[in-house]
Design a protein around this nucleic acid. Structure first.
Lengths: 253, 253
DNA sequence: GAATGTTGTGCAATATCGTGCAGTAACTTG
DNA sequence: CAAGTTACTGCACGATATTGCACAACATTC
């Protein structure tokens, strides 16, 4: 196993799991703890992670990482969320994906809207409790803790019994050639299943997602119907999608 | 468990619960009280919290003067929750009902416990996210907003595919003759279904529930296996259940 | 003021860390 | 092809950090 590979893998895991234990890593990779520690030391030297006794934590600020990331693009995110929420019509069945972007959509949904929201995210279900006219349908399954959504066979089964009018999907990568991608295999499978059960699929794409590619593909760009981006998005980035008949919505704050 | 993680978790809980007790924390995290106290001391040194005899309070505000009434009823509830959480064993499949009592159980579950928790409550699922060794299985269905649990045909279907070792049930009425009752028809049906799929059914009964009767019956007293009550419960109230072979657990704060 | 529970400190056991050293493999150089 | 160079990895050992226990001091309650 190459050094570079190891380091990449360490950083990858660190991002997903928020913590790394030197001993565990050495066992799982079949290497001595010394090697792992050396890697950690070097990565810490490059400022890519923060060492603590027993392992390592993400670079920026331990667990403060998530809140800060939320704040940074909070304005754009709520703008996108509002634009998505505005697409919903009375009487529709709306499928809401899991993730911070879609929780924002849930919050942005009008108290006046009479509709059914289907979701496999407990967070979304909780966020929608206070909406008096929204019927909530929760998809069950094994909870995938990294992103807090239901996955697995039970979730797929639940999805297969529902047909939605519109699906608001969060992704980590949107690319003209490679399509929609995300960083986890199970999540990709679930998103694909939902998209197939929905008449329309709308993708929420904050700036950094456009042109990005993640490990697991969900569906091709031809299978989605709309893209919601922030206002400051360049036309060049969006052309490949427009020419394929995908409706673009620019979210104005 | 890493030191930094512990501290982050302590601060996190402090923000949520406004008050933490060193003893409880040590039990849930599976560490000695000394370690917790050391952490509290260090965090207090950094001005991140304020120590008091028995535990700690958030740093800045004068939240110490919260209504004492709220604390008292909360104490009994957490006592019951702790007693319930202590019943769980490694490797078990545990069904957790929805409701404030059972969310407290979720929070009281030890970080050391390796088990699967099945629930039809999004709140429980979210509460258990931080437990590293708990596998969460969420039951889907239409969300009944009054109590925030999944109900209906989809929920029944999901429950029918799972067998649990132990079921912690919340109710609104426990009566020797009328059995276990609750105020909603759909919830009663779900609780009954879960009870049938579980080897043991344990009922969480705060003081005001004993002897009370609500509109819809769940199961008779003969179909439950255990009752957890607070310490100040009179023996007379409990006799009818003991004579029927139901194990009584008195929760001591 | 006695009983109980909580706290601080010294101490020992354990786990983790950093460094020096040696062996191996891939690559370079003459 | 042989020798040297470099990078990588694992082992050993002393240094440091963390944790749990014991006991005395202190606070709280009745």
């Amino acid at each position: 196993m190459l050094t570079m590979e190891r380091k990449a893998l360490i950083l990858d895991r660190l991002q997903k799991e928020q913590r790394i234990v030197a001993k565990d890593l050495s066992q799982q990779l079949g290497l001595s703890e010394d090697t792992i520690r050396r890697d950690l030391r070097e990565l810490a030297g490059e400022g890519l992670l923060q060492r603590v006794h027993g392992g390592a934590l993400p670079a920026s600020k331990a667990l403060a990482d998530l809140p800060s990331r939320r704040k940074i693009s909070a304005e754009d995110k709520t703008a996108i969320a509002k634009a998505a929420a505005a697409m919903a019509r009375n009487g529709q069945v709306i499928f809401l994906d899991g993730g911070t972007s879609t929780v924002a959509v849930a919050r942005a949904i009008s108290m006046q809207l009479h509709a059914t929201v289907v979701t496999h995210s407990p967070d979304i279900a909780v966020a929608l409790l206070e909406h008096p006219n929204i019927e909530i349908e929760l998809i069950g399954g094994r909870i995938y803790k990294h992103s807090n959504v239901a996955v697995g066979a039970a979730a797929s089964e639940g999805i297969s019994h529902i047909r939605a009018d519109i699906f608001f999907m969060g992704v980590t990568g949107v690319h003209p050639d490679y399509g929609l991608t995300t960083g986890d295999r199970e999540e990709a499978a679930i998103k694909r299943a939902i998209s197939r059960q929905s008449a329309e699929t709308i993708v929420l794409a904050s700036k950094e997602k456009l042109g990005a590619v993640s490990a697991y593909d969900i569906v091709g760009v031809d299978e989605i119907d709309g893209l919601i981006v922030e206002k400051s998005c360049s036309n060049d980035l969006l052309k490949p999608y427009q020419t394929r008949g995908i409706s673009i919505t620019r979210a104005h704050a």
